[in-house]
């Protein structure tokens, strides 16, 4: 029993690490004797990685980025879910707001940066707003859909037991929409990372995106690639964290799905 568990775990680790290992190997050998200025050997990049991303640099450039990312993301979750509940529960609100929301959704946030700068300044507020303005949409739309797709029978049951107001919102509406909301949040996470980088390309003085652009402008190409690599690792770490949180929050849902699949 223990042996099979160990084997299964080993197999999973192998599966998870296999592809990245292969890709890194391909990258390593394909660039090993590269003389192209813009495609330095991976060995050089990794060597620079250690030199560039010291604790000092992590504190001065990566931490501010992460703070803005977390702030923007959480704000987007609050706004997205809040607005999504309102829109999802009321047909009238939906009819009134839908065209406006679709209009704003279609505007790419990078285009809005100069406009946002005019009223939000050039500091952290602007960067957080850029993140919110882009990554709230999947959360909002998924929340609306999740709320609308609620179970009729459950809804009727709640009504007949007199469950209304906050209790209904919390135990019925939010609960039943939560798988969809989480899906939206997962999509929003990767968009938030992209926008974090983009927002730091305007009037920034620190940050991961800012540092990568500075490296590129000053022709420090291996350093630039090391920043790109760090960005990828960051995205990977955040998605692991997200999955961990999701498994806890949606344990009931995954259990339900499993039960439905093998009765």
């Amino acid at each position: 029993m223990i042996r099979t568990t160990v084997l299964t775990a080993a197999r999973r680790v192998l599966l998870v690490l296999g592809m990245p290992a292969v890709l890194f190997a391909v990258w390593w050998f394909a660039t090993a004797d590269s003389t192209d200025f813009y495609v330095p050997p991976l060995a050089t990049i990794l060597q620079k990685f250690g030199e560039v991303w010291t604790v000092e640099r992590l504190l001065s450039d990566v931490v501010p980025s992460l703070i803005r990312l977390v702030a923007g993301y959480l704000l987007a979750v609050v706004v997205g879910v809040g607005l999504g509940l309102v829109v999802g529960m009321s047909r009238v609100v939906r009819d009134v707001l839908e065209p406006v929301l679709e209009l704003f959704r279609a505007i790419p946030p990078p285009v809005l940066v100069p406009v946002i700068m005019l009223f939000a300044g050039i500091g952290d507020t602007m960067k957080v707003i850029v993140i919110v303005s882009g990554c709230m949409w999947p959360i909002l739309l998924n929340t609306v859909e999740g709320v609308r797709a609620g179970d009729e029978v459950l809804s009727d049951t709640c009504r007949s037991y007199g469950i209304t107001g906050v209790a209904r919102l919390r135990h019925l509406v939010l609960r039943s929409a939560s798988p969809q909301i989480v899906t939206g949040m997962r999509q929003a996470l990767s968009i938030a990372i992209i926008l974090m980088v983009i927002s730091e390309m305007f009037a920034a003085i620190n940050g991961l995106g800012f540092t990568i652009v500075q490296f590129q402008r000053s022709f420090a190409i291996p350093e630039m690639w090391s920043g790109v690599l760090l960005l990828g690792l960051l995205g990977f770490a955040l998605s692991l964290l997200f999955r961990f949180a999701e498994n806890r929050v949606l344990a009931w849902y995954h259990g339900l799905r499993r039960a439905q699949r093998n009765p």
């Binding site: 100069p114 700068m117 005019l118 300044g121 050039i122 305007f202 009037a203 920034a204 003085i205």
Partner: peptide, 14 residues
Amino acid sequence: LEMPFDQMPAALDG
């Protein structure tokens, strides 16, 4: 701090 030229007049004014 860094900013594209075309956004500077507005940033200065603001």
